[in-house]
Design a protein around this nucleic acid. Structure first.
Lengths: 313, 313
DNA sequence: GTTAGTTGTCGAAACGTTTCGACAACTTTC
DNA sequence: GAAAGTTGTCGAAACGTTTCGACAACTAAC
């Protein structure tokens, strides 16, 4: 209700003066500024975003796109994004689904963070061509106005493999993820490299980064008695699945077989026994992404970043 | 770039005609409409939201406010909200934090869903007084422009208690939640009523609806040998905590003690043994809330709703 | 062939801001 | 005390839409 106009009227000044005062311009005298500010306060003035956005051509809102809200993975990540965005004076909104992608060209938001494989490369490139700032978290994409935040998959994978080897296993099964998934590709590559470097027998079982495919992988694993095995699930969802399979089939975890995962999913810690998993700060992951997006929006120079992983025995 | 103005120019008609055509008004002839539409298509026209919102005084966006993004609880809920909102032709955004609450008075959004205890009653009532449509999911609040979606806590609590009684326990410990939490109050009340109706011994241990307080509750529980006990955690987070405590202290679950929880948290299913928990459709919970908010926005009559709970042995 | 109605188009105002350029009223400088 | 600079204020345009009211050009009715 109460707009800049009403304030101007009440203060006996022009609209423009009110606007200057509200925006802290030095053009306006201290006396009028204080008067206007107190009237605004008193009238409970809150700027109308549509009006502001229209004029400013800028909203200070960014959005993150997720495939779905499912899974505990996103908690810390969003927390990190949110905090960083707020530190930078921006608001973060979380979106999902095809239609809301229009927010970008509709100019409701200044830039986007993408962790949603359904948001296709070609669609992203199309927006990038119109110079909309974009940060992707689940792939690499080369474009002037796109940056990526990546994980140090190589280090994590190598450590997980080493940890299995340290248990003295005779063979390692690597449960891989989708063919076209960036993380899956990198993790698999490093895992294979580690196995070959250490000259340990290994086998790759294809999975889909979800629990059910981890469970199904159990059927493909051959356990000979008197031998011990390692299973490296390239993500924890699949680790959950294989854990369930093994438990159901009375194969004793941490004796007959050792499991390692990736992502440090909350649930893995509650299993008996828990699954050891490659970790990284999801909070930093999110915060870093927002930091990069901010620079992109402000047209400052910025590079891709890599988040480091760690593995504790 | 391409706005309604450019389209008008290219089509050789006025701005208003373009607007009518784009909005499917019957005022404009079929011939010009098709022409305008094809030009708009060709120019990749996407309306500028700020302009539209400014004029329409409506955005078709609603927001849900969460205390934090942590926890798997929100997954299904958001999924339900999102789908329903989309079915109704609205976009849903997820927000967190104090500053973004201004979205409502800033007119960026048409209404809000609140599941965030930090969003105080008084603040909500203040907005409600300005006729902003609000749906609360974590409390009851009486106001012309506020509605609540509630859980059938009574039924759920009663069933959980009955289930413990059926196990033949001698005494039931009820781990309650925060004093001012609506669900906690209702669940406790029903649990106590059930215990008294069945004339079974019980005790209340205060908790905080989080894992650590559930764990700490373990210390307050007295287990005499030769007796069996029931523990009813008024939410699953606390159930997780007490489960951990009991396991660590070698008290055998499902023999010495039986646990029941509330909310059917994803993690509870992965525990050994799992915790039986009162369930309800979080998807429906979310979808219902959005449905109500929609009616509130459209100024249609609508009442509070209750989501039913169920408990399977 | 006047009158009355219908159809399709348009101009202009409105929504709530920001910001440029103008300018009156001062102050400083010489 | 005239010229030059500074300060504080204002009017008006602009951002991209929607929508009212006007109206010209038709058609239908008598």
């Amino acid at each position: 209700m109460a707009g800049i106009k009403e304030i101007a009227e009440k203060a006996g000044v022009s609209i423009s003066t009110v606007s200057y005062a509200l925006n802290g311009s030095s053009r306006v005298s201290v006396k009028t500024r204080d008067k206007i500010l107190s009237i605004a306060e008193e009238m409970n003035y809150i700027p109308n975003l549509a009006g502001q956005n229209l004029r400013r051509q800028r909203t200070n809102i960014i959005a993150v796109y997720l495939t779905s809200y499912q899974g505990s993975f996103f908690g810390d990540l969003l927390q990190g994004m949110h905090q960083k965005a707020n530190d930078l004076g921006m608001e973060l909104i979380v979106c999902s689904g095809k239609r809301s992608r229009l927010f970008l060209p509709q100019r409701l938001i200044d830039g986007i963070l993408v962790l949603d494989k359904n948001f296709s490369d070609s669609e992203l490139l199309k927006y990038a061509d119109q110079s909309y700032p974009i940060v992707v978290l689940d792939r690499t994409l080369k474009h002037e106005s796109i940056r990526s935040v990546l994980l140090d998959n190589e280090k994590g994978s190598t450590q997980a493999m080493q940890s299995l080897i340290n248990e003295g296993v005779d063979k390692i099964y690597i449960i891989s993820g989708p063919e076209n998934n960036h993380d899956s590709i990198e993790r698999k590559k490093a895992a294979v490299a580690a196995a070959e470097a250490q000259e340990i027998e290994y086998d790759i079982i294809p999975g889909q980064f979800n629990e059910i495919s981890g469970y199904q992988a159990g059927d493909k694993v051959v356990f000979e008695p008197e031998k011990t095995y390692g299973v490296f699930a390239l993500n924890d969802e699949m680790g959950l699945g294989i854990h369930k399979y093994l438990t159901e089939h009375n194969i004793v975890i941490n004796k007959d077989v050792f499991i390692r995962g990736f992502d440090r999913n909350q649930v893995t810690g509650y299993l008996t026994p828990p699954i050891k998993s490659v970790a990284y700060s999801k909070f930093d992951f999110g915060a870093t992404a927002v930091g990069i997006l901010n620079k992109l929006i402000k047209e400052e120079a910025v590079d891709n970043k890599t988040i480091s992983t760690y593995f504790e025995e």
